[in-house]
Design a binder for these strands. Structure first.
Lengths: 146, 146
DNA sequence: CCTAATCTCTCTAGCAGCTATAGCTTCAAG
DNA sequence: CTTGAAGCTATAGCTGCTAGAGAGATTAGG
């Protein structure tokens, strides 16, 4: 049996985060020691490692909730899991595309900076005037398509 | 003179967001009509367009605050503005690198999905076992290097 | 066995960057 | 003059944590 601290070390998840996951119902409530401290077994470790891994891959907690409930039903078809992963892939691809446009624009900005005064700084100038941009980089980075 | 709604339309910034920017001091308090409604002139429009554009390029509000104060002093050297833009560029580049790794992993997941049941779904399997991954994709996406 | 150091507990509040709601007032068109 | 849209303030909520306070539990050393 692991204490919350050991579990955190084993999975690379911080202790308050584990408690947070329990609070939002992503991890089930676990048994407690005589002194009310959480104790975790192998299943909890696996589940938390799953969550951690999915978070690392950029899945939202909502998506992870769905994936976990799928993982709990091995007999069901995996189409739903596949769909979630595909949606995440699409999301990642669109973020990459957007970030590439930003990168191009930022590179243009810094390359053209003459290192003089603000008055003729390309960085400030471009920010002041969108028409100086060559790429389409509207919509903030974190945004999800509507 | 523009009302807040017209300003929002002109810049593509939502009305509550404009009020929020004023609240956090990114936009100065503006004049009001006899009936206490905000009225904006050309300068406010330019400033908000600047903010919007910088947000689109992924700058944080803190960075934008700095850029705005630089833009307000055209006589100063532009090294600081250049540094902010370069930092943003570096940030964007590292995000792209991370997202590429995620994309590769997600693609492997969905490509190998046999469309059977969850029990042998590659998606669930990979999430359950990090050692099945080929790329290094630790650290969540939004993270800033320490 | 006692103490000190280190966990762990709960609870609350905070971060970015908005967005939404409630309940009101003001304004412009007809 | 009335109606409906647009504006006002204030507060709370969103995601995914993180930090802090103040208390109790556990463990290692003496």
């Amino acid at each position: 049996m692991l204490t919350i601290g050991k579990l955190g070390q084993a999975t690379g998840v911080k202790v308050p985060t584990i408690r947070y996951y329990e609070q939002i119902g992503l991890l089930p409530e676990t048994e407690r020691s005589a002194g009310n401290q959480r104790l975790y077994g192998r299943m909890a470790l696996d589940r938390l490692a799953f969550i951690r891994h999915a978070r690392d891959l950029g899945f939202t907690l909502e998506a992870i909730r769905d994936l976990l409930s799928l993982a709990d039903h091995p007999d069901r078809p995996c189409a739903a899991a596949d769909a979630i992963a595909r949606a995440q892939l699409a999301e990642v691809e669109s973020r990459i595309a957007r970030l590439m446009a930003l990168k191009a624009e930022l590179e243009r900005m810094v390359v053209h900076c003459a290192h003089g005064t603000i008055a003729d700084c390309r960085v400030i100038e471009v920010l002041s005037d969108h028409s100086l941009c060559v790429t389409d980089h509207r919509h903030p980075e974190g945004e999800v398509a509507p």
